[in-house]
Design a protein around this nucleic acid. Structure first.
Lengths: 194, 194
DNA sequence: GTCTATATTCCGATAGAC
DNA sequence: GTCTATCGGAATATAGAC
């Protein structure tokens, strides 16, 4: 059962990604060195290249995994009324993003450090997520439940507002996550209602 | 009238700051080298140090100037009714930020690259700007015009929503700045109204 | 699979000539 | 005020031993 000599762990790969996620979020991709990441994991810098081809790939993987997980988790049930769909989306977005502040930070702030092909891939995923909300708003507007002259703008406005929560909300603070979800849902609901 | 031999321009200082603003916004502070900035300006890297003591000072100056300019420009007239004050704030925020997308980007994204003392200074300025909106919402809530259970949260929600405009709005696009201001004002107004 | 050692390039910042 | 040249260090990534 013993593995190759010198193999300390089967989970070095995930540990590299965890360390990179935390460090990239805290200091920014460009400001973090491979040596720093290796130091957090407890290996030498050269050892990282057994798991990733280069630093850029590490960033892309983190961003792609986050976006894919987001797309798989977002609730979509077009048989529900638009208002219920919108409420589910708002509460989901706040809860999901609150649980992954580092990934959120990276996914929104490190786009400029992606090479063109990688950028296009991540942007396509983001576009699919935005389309979920836009669909809800468009359906609701069509049904006369919502009053949104331009669903595309309303989509971007709502997502910007909701994502902002991760920049300040801390569970130890004055308000619970539920409180925050309640108040944001109230504001979003009123902002789009007819 | 001739200046010291070798002096090509009195405005090298501003040109350094312009180049740094653009490059920091595009690639991020940590990813931009002094040599790149010098290249944009048309001087050698060493010449930059006639104008700035170090790279960090350059970043701090850009952020401080942006925040100070913002605070000086934000309309404050507490003799107006809260609803009028809120509308003025919303339209101002979108217009002001739209005219300075690079400075906005830097002021919101490069906070982590500030040394602690500099960070505290910029955060204090940001707090003062947020306090302007919070004051409006609190006054309006007290007067029964607005329904905002927690003015602090509503402040952060509105600012996040408005600032998001700079990430996608382009004047050449489908909508004019006025269209965008109208629709955002409509959403903000509804979201806080009693 | 991890190590040590290193190739190569680039970094921020400084010194001194002009 | 800008130049050339350079210091000291750190960056990404690779090579080869174990």
């Amino acid at each position: 059962m013993a593995r190759t000599t010198g193999s300390h762990s089967d989970i070095t790969g995930p540990r590299i990604r965890d360390a990179a996620l935390r460090l990239f979020a805290r200091h920014g991709y460009a400001a973090v060195s491979m040596r720093q990441i290796a130091g957090e994991v407890g290996v030498q810098a050269g050892a990282l290249y057994n798991y990733i081809p280069d630093k850029q790939s590490l960033l892309v993987e983190l961003m792609r995994d986050h976006m894919v997980e987001l797309l798989e988790a977002v609730p979509v049930d077009r048989s529900d009324p638009p208002l219920a769909q919108l409420e589910a989306f708002v509460r989901f977005h706040i809860g999901f993003h609150h649980a992954r502040p580092d990934a959120v930070f990276i996914a929104y702030m490190e786009l400029r450090n992606l090479e063109p092909g990688n950028f296009a891939e991540i942007e396509e995923l983001r576009g699919r997520y935005e389309a979920v909300l836009e669909r809800i708003l468009r359906d609701g507007a069509g049904a006369g439940v919502f009053d949104v002259p331009d669903p595309k703008i309303a989509t971007l406005a709502v997502i910007a507002m909701l994502t902002g929560v991760t920049t300040w909300f801390r569970a130890e603070g004055r308000l619970s996550l539920g409180d925050v979800q309640d108040q944001y849902w109230d504001m979003v609901r009123k902002s789009v209602m007819a």
